[in-house]
Write a protein that binds this DNA or RNA. Structure first.
Lengths: 214, 214
DNA sequence: TTCCCGTTCGGACGCTCGTTCGGACCCGAC
DNA sequence: GTCGGGTCCGAACGAGCGTCCGAACGGGAA
């Protein structure tokens, strides 16, 4: 709610619109002209706010990780039960993704575009996030070896991040249901039977109606 | 082992090198000049084998899905136990990915680049593959609703496909161990304790050494 | 030898790319 | 009024893009 200068507001707008364009066309496929048009700025006017196309991507990714990590800290600080902490972590991750779908896709899909110092900073944030997840998983299953932990961590990230290829709010329901299901799936497995998360009980249509994002 | 004409051999070579370049730079980032150089063909010479850059991507993806589906059919036809079938499916998926890492990345990362008829054909193959997985999951847990099935299917694909962002054979061990672990993780969950897959017992280094592909 | 046809390529086409630069606009301070 | 600095943009730059065309190559058939 704090005051924001005209400059900051416009930069925010530019980053937001750039994320949409990047999500739609990919980093290389999107042109600075596309982005400037979407943001309502002239081509050269964009360069008053941003040094380069790469910096645009960097700023988007940096802000996303910062938000995710901050919100995660806030959510976890009051809870000590490991299983509940994992639930919160997955909720936090999916929640951010669902309410920032363009940024989420940019984060997941343009992960290795940056180079140099930009890449180094983002990599640090990823490492920090990964470490939190791994530590949490180690608490949950102390007998697991580090190799197992590594694979389990990435499997969890795979489940969570892949949703950018298939999740659509109107079709797939609210994200908190999804988070509950995914936590259950990760902790107890599919074989234990999927726990009912929400109230919907629509219909048992065949699975052959699926497409995309295999 | 059958005879292959000079033409077919060269086309295969081109597709293989194109996959490497696409995997490295992304579809939009890679240029026809990059690909022709990698394949040892002149810029215009490439167009004798391929109508366009888009067709290049299409041919790569088509061949991959065909191989995966064919090998899956061959593996599943003799087995009827659902759990064993799922194990084979995951093994097949990860096995193909591990021995075709460039193609795997192209498959996972350039999934929505194609358009028109190209896209339609690839989408059909994906649908077929998705349906096989969903049907198998429904057999495993008949009480699950279709919505759950959909989410579980995509969660499984997420776990499997995400490995293109982190898997390196020399560091992460043989792929069959990974497949065993992942099957166990998906069916029984992380909470049940990770089953030991292989013989390695190297060291328990901290998880903070992780990076990338969050 | 001559011809033909599958294969190959140099060079060019028109276009879009990311970035830059000089100047114009706006508005509060003097 | 006019000055100055923060904000914005039209126009252009060189480079690289995907694609195409016409000619050249090479080896088996006639």
């Amino acid at each position: 709610m704090e005051e924001q200068s005209r400059y900051d507001a416009k930069l925010t707008r530019i980053l937001s619109e750039a994320a949409v364009v990047f999500a739609e066309k990919g980093y290389d496929g999107a042109s600075i002209r596309d982005i400037s048009a979407a943001a309502g700025v002239s081509l050269s006017g964009l360069y008053y706010y941003v040094r380069s196309k790469e910096e645009l991507l960097y700023l988007i990714q940096r802000q996303c990780f910062q938000t995710i990590l901050d919100q995660l800290d806030a959510a976890l600080c009051a809870v000590s039960d490991p299983e509940q902490r994992l639930t919160l972590l997955i909720s936090n991750h999916l929640g951010f993704f669902a309410s920032n779908m363009s940024e989420m896709k940019v984060l997941s899909h343009e992960a290795d575009v940056l180079s140099g110092d930009y890449a180094r900073e983002i990599t640090d944030q990823k490492r920090e996030y990964s470490a939190i997840v791994s530590d949490l998983l180690r608490t949950l299953a102390p007998q697991a070896q580090s190799v197992d932990l590594r694979r389990a961590t990435f499997s969890l990230f795979g489940m969570m991040n892949w949703i950018y290829t298939w999740y659509r709010p109107d079709r797939d329901g609210p994200v908190n249901v999804l988070a509950t299901e995914m936590t259950h799936l990760f902790l107890r497995g599919f074989g234990s039977g999927i726990q009912r998360g929400g109230t919907e009980r629509s219909g048992g249509r065949s699975a052959t109606s699926m497409r995309r994002s295999v």
